[in-house]
């Protein structure tokens, strides 16, 4: 059996919960469009397209993790947030998820809202909060940028995985016998390991882009001595 599906499949979460999250995701993405337009100029628009294409490509590259028989792949929220900002970044990941669901049969169409909520919204938002904090604390060197990308990416994957746990608690189709903590622990543990891969890919990519074209790294733009409150509120993306 070719197990190339990477996202929530149909039947895993019940219909009503999936519909609620679809509405939630649609509202949040509308907000991202409205706010992201401020960032989208003639230069950023094609670059954001490239970021989406790159995330699609790297998501295909399932890498083995230390646990036998389990693989992981990039989610991309942290990478997108660093390169094009949280608002456009969330839209980039969403484009990837929509293409995968509609064309590649990966992630149920009815489950799209759940997948977008976890990976495009939660993952990107968590990553950007961490990026905003870390870039202010860490030295502004390539090493500082790499550590920022690594940590933000790693933790954002764990946050995204817990989004699924919440959804499963609300509408999971199998009775876990009250053992939701077991699922939460399994998901967190395996995604911490996947997060190492996510972190390495994110850090490498961002440092490379920063070396070639520092002006194309969104996260470096906001670094002004005067602290302008441009950081989105934690819950802003919902």
């Amino acid at each position: 059996m070719e197990t190339l599906a990477m996202h929530i499949s149909n039947g895993i979460i019940d219909g009503p919960v999936a519909a609620v999250f679809a509405a939630l995701a649609l509202a949040a993405l509308t907000g991202c469009v409205l706010r992201g337009r401020r960032d989208l100029d003639d230069r950023l628009a094609p670059m954001a397209g490239l970021v989406a294409a790159f995330i699609f490509a790297v998501q295909m590259l399932n890498f083995p993790i230390f646990t036998a028989g389990v693989s992981g792949h990039l989610l991309g929220g942290a990478l997108a947030a660093m390169l094009v900002g949280p608002w456009v970044g969330a839209l980039c990941v969403s484009v990837v998820l929509v293409v995968q669901a509609l064309v590649f049969g990966d992630g149920g169409v009815a489950m799209l809202g759940l997948n977008i909520t976890n990976m495009a919204l939660l993952g990107t938002a968590a990553a950007y909060v961490l990026i905003a904090v870390l870039l202010r604390v860490l030295p502004r060197t390539p090493a500082g940028l790499a550590v920022t990308g690594f940590v933000a990416a790693m933790l954002s994957v764990v946050v995204a995985s817990q989004g699924f746990v919440l959804q499963y608690w609300l509408g999971g189709t199998t009775d876990l016998g009250g053992n939701l903590a077991g699922l939460a622990g399994t998901m967190a543990g395996v995604h911490l390991l996947i997060g190492i891969g996510e972190g390495l890919i994110t850090a490498t990519t961002v440092v490379t882009v920063a070396k070639v074209r520092p002006d194309l790294v969104y996260a470096l733009r906001g670094l002004r001595p005067a602290t302008v409150p441009t950081v989105p509120a934690v819950g802003g993306v919902r």
């Binding site: 890498f63 993790i65 028989g69 998901m187 390991l193």
Partner: peptide, 10 residues
Amino acid sequence: ASSHPDGLDS
């Protein structure tokens, strides 16, 4: 790429 199930599937 690895063809094993990913973190979610596993």
